[in-house]
Amino acid sequence: MNEKTTAPSETGVRTEAAPETSASKANDTLRPMPQVNRITANDVIDALAAGLMDFRKAPVYGLAIGALFAAGGLFVILSAAALNMSYLAYPAAAGFVLIGPFAAVGLYEVSRRLASGEELSWSAIFGAMWAQKGRELSWMAFVVLFIQIMWMYQVRLLLALFLGFKSFASFDEFLTQVISTPEGLMFLAVGHVVGAILSLLLFSLTVVSFPLLLEEDRDFITAMITSVRAVVTSPVPMIGWAFVVTALLIVSMVPAFLGLIVVLPVLGHTTWHLYKKCVVIPQDNSQTASA
């Protein structure tokens, strides 16, 4: 056995905590990296079908989480208008959508429980989400937040470069300036290119890292490396899926974010099944080998 027994010290106090902590850290370091499978477009289609099936099996959870996310997006837009910064409504909305992978954690848990046959309940779903506060998934939230901040800063920078430090009385005035002047069109072109690069970066870092951290007690660096490896291993289907996600999110944002009520849960469930196709967690035989 790998259990470490120690004799009491002269004071009668057992002194085994420090050696066990060191051994635990060593075992964590020696755990094998998750394996990454090569997938095809058919695997993406299969994952989407499985995601739709999960949504039909547990629609209440998906609709509720989607509604909360849509309400958050609407709040961002209304806040920009209330602060007389309606010209930031579009980039703020686009930046808000970047936190979708974090918002979908509850949906990953629903899909995981459906696959394993575990009972579904609000207490179980929110309990699983709350349990992440002390785990590595919370660090991934900071990664997403950092990229969102980068997005907003580059928007302000491009506004200053192409449109100057102008103030716009309304969103209509801003839109007219953007689509009717060469400077505005350049702002749109460069802004969308930069946004696409940041979105692809975020997608690569998070497409399987959030599901991985929910299922496995891994460090967030390992999760991000695994996620990037999944994209690099299967670039065409994965980037194709990224375009599908982007298109669906843009369409769902148009009617006051209402489309997100359905689109977010479907994308969340699909991402879980895509993760299960991409990533294989090797069995940790360190305990068996050392026993």
Rank of each mutant, 00 (worst) to 15 (best):
M152W: 10
N2F: 09
A189R: 14
I261S: 08
M129K: 14
R113L: 09
L98W: 10
N27Q: 11
L249M: 14
A160S: 08
V76I: 15
S111N: 09
V97D: 06
V251F: 10
W130F: 12
F203K: 03
A41L: 14
V178I: 14
Y87C: 04
I39L: 08
V105R: 15
G117H: 12
T222C: 02
S116D: 07
L198K: 00
F55P: 03
E10W: 12
A131W: 12
A131Y: 13
V144D: 05
L212P: 04
S290R: 15
G72A: 08
G62K: 14
P19E: 04
L267N: 00
R229S: 09
T206V: 09
D219K: 14
A242W: 01
E173Y: 02
L83G: 08
F187D: 07
A189N: 09
G184C: 07
N285A: 08
L264Y: 12
Q148P: 01
A26K: 15
A289R: 15
V207A: 00
G184E: 07
T29W: 14
T271P: 05
S209C: 06
G195F: 12
D217K: 15
A103R: 15
I281Q: 04
Q283I: 02
T181A: 00
S167D: 05
L107T: 03
M152F: 09
L274C: 00
I39Y: 13
D46P: 08
K133M: 09
V44T: 01
K133H: 07
V190I: 14
V251L: 12
T226M: 09
F55I: 05
F220K: 04
K4Y: 09
D217F: 07
N285R: 15
P282E: 06
A64I: 11
T181H: 00
I250A: 12
R56E: 03
P282N: 10
W151S: 06
G117N: 08
G12Q: 11
R38F: 13
A230T: 01
P91E: 05
V245T: 01
G134E: 06
G184D: 03
V228R: 15
F187K: 13
N2T: 04
F210N: 02
L248N: 01
E20A: 12
A92D: 03
R229W: 13
E183C: 05
G117E: 05
G240R: 00
M253F: 11
N42C: 04
G100H: 12
L163Q: 04
P19Y: 12
V36F: 03
Y153Q: 10
W272H: 03
A289G: 12
T40D: 05
A23Q: 13
G12A: 10
F168Q: 02
V236T: 11
Y61T: 03
S204N: 04
L175N: 13
F55W: 12
G259Y: 13
T15W: 14
Y153F: 14
V76Q: 11
T11D: 10
K133G: 02
E183G: 07
K166D: 05
V244N: 00
V266T: 06
F69Q: 06
D43N: 12
P235G: 01
A256L: 13
L249D: 01
A291V: 09
I125S: 06
L120E: 04
K166M: 11
A189G: 05
L258C: 07
L30I: 03
L214M: 14
F162V: 01
Y87H: 14
F162D: 01
A169N: 11
A242L: 08
V262K: 08
L267K: 00
